[in-house]
């Protein structure tokens, strides 16, 4: 399980479309060998097929695909967009915080989702994620959840 480690986080990434934002989070997972290229493509495909339902809360998107699309390990990456991007969600647009979920079929899948929920259910954490200047500022938000 890999959850928001330093190599899985990129701050202030330029993206001009939802697809670019999704590919950016997926590429972080792929570069860390946590998912295959096929999974990144499936993340984009899911958006095109099912729409922006994975924009879960104001500012926050959780693009993902299925375990069988090529996941090696349960994982979550994080991209903060330099400028907000509209995903087409009627209530939660625009998006600035994109969490790429590598959905595995293992029990760790539930664990990473619970860690993510613990992080994002607290509005103060969301504010800090929106303004943090570095990974060092984000790291304390993730601690104490092991």
């Amino acid at each position: 399980m890999k959850f928001l480690e330093e190599s899985l986080i990129a701050l202030d990434v330029e993206a001009n479309s939802p697809e670019e934002a999704i590919i950016s989070t997926g590429t972080l997972l792929k570069n860390n060998k946590l998912v295959e290229e096929t999974y990144v493509n499936a993340m984009v495909h899911s958006f095109k097929t099912n729409g922006p339902y994975f924009v879960l809360a104001p500012n926050i998107a959780l693009p993902h695909a299925r375990p069988e699309d090529g996941v090696n390990e349960a994982c979550v990456s994080f991209v903060r967009l330099k400028t907000p991007v509209k995903f087409g969600h009627s209530y939660n647009d625009p998006v600035r915080l994109v969490f790429g979920l590598g959905a595995s079929s293992s029990i760790e899948h539930v664990t990473v989702l619970q860690k993510l929920m613990a992080l994002l259910s607290d509005q103060e954490n969301v504010e800090k994620l929106l303004t943090a200047q570095s990974y060092e500022e984000i790291k304390p938000l993730l601690g104490g959840q092991e």
């Binding site: 959780l62 899948h109 989702l113």
Partner: peptide
């Protein structure tokens, strides 16, 4: 219910 039944709907279910 979510698009794939993997992540989003599980978060919703837990809550």
């Amino acid at each position: 219910v979510c698009g794939l039944g993997q992540g989003t709907s599980l978060i919703l279910r837990i809550n």
